[in-house]
Amino acid sequence: MAAEQTEVVLRLSQVTRRYGNQIALDQVALELAAGEVYALIGRNGAGKSTLAKAAIGALALDSGSVRILGVDPSNDLKVRRAVGIAPQEVALYPHLTIAENLDAFAALAGLSRRERVAAVASAMDDAVCTQRADERLDHLSGGWQRRANLAAAIVHRPRLLVLDEPTEGLDVETRLVLHRLIARLRAARTAILLISHNTEDVALLADRLGVMEAGRLIAEGRPAELMATAFDGRTELVIRLSTTTPLVEPFLRARGLAPSDGGLCWSGNVANAFAQAHAIEIELRRVEVELRELAVRPPGLDALIGWATGLAPA
């Protein structure tokens, strides 16, 4: 598997893009191999969608370079046919049916009439939208439109697929459709750049992930490696109190917890979480503050973003 993944489909080298005085992408370098799922996470406005546009050659760069299959997409428009994108919005013609939309995009990608028939059927099958193939898009629910949006991204069998918030507003069933689709595409050696706020999806699907902040890729690696680096065996401890009192604040802070919800909730990533929890329970009993809830769990990707951006202590 490792040997198979050596073909680099996408390479971004020191990509920089400014909008006036604001820097949208700052010296971003990234490589994506065939059959790899790379997830970009980060806060709103971190530059994830801008990076996606740069990756497909749709953004003029101030400096740096983008190569898709070794070719600069801004100079060689033909290589763009190897790219598929499912933008955040449903980027389809509302007055066309699903099948007509897919046929149009397959034709734009240069497929012949005969190839299109098979490609459209296959894409609808993969995105599980065949049963609504002949319905106009503007007559369909949001979930079906999302499936069609995915199908349009893969109808021409791209080598590089960019999915921008693909699970935004999806029901459980459609999310599962997406998960299965990504698994199939990965097996077919499609390189996938996944931009998502949904840390659950990222944790399940990504081979590697990168954390973006202020246009920079501030952390990158396999999810497990990143978590180990960030938290070094620490786990997340969350407690909820019935009331607030200044008496508890010093010792909760001393144990690495930070308040939220007006001081009623305290959380943090701590070593020896169970021992810490026990000590806290005893202390709270001593000052007669009722403990409503106590949870010990592995830190999530939100915590990872917090760690990487320095906004929350690890």
Binding site: A58, L77, R81, P87, A91, Y93, A109
Partner: peptide
């Protein structure tokens, strides 16, 4: 507005 241009921009020919 619908993001279609991003997708259409990928078609050969620009």
């Amino acid at each position: 507005r619908a993001g279609l241009r991003l997708r259409l921009g990928l078609s050969a020919g620009g």
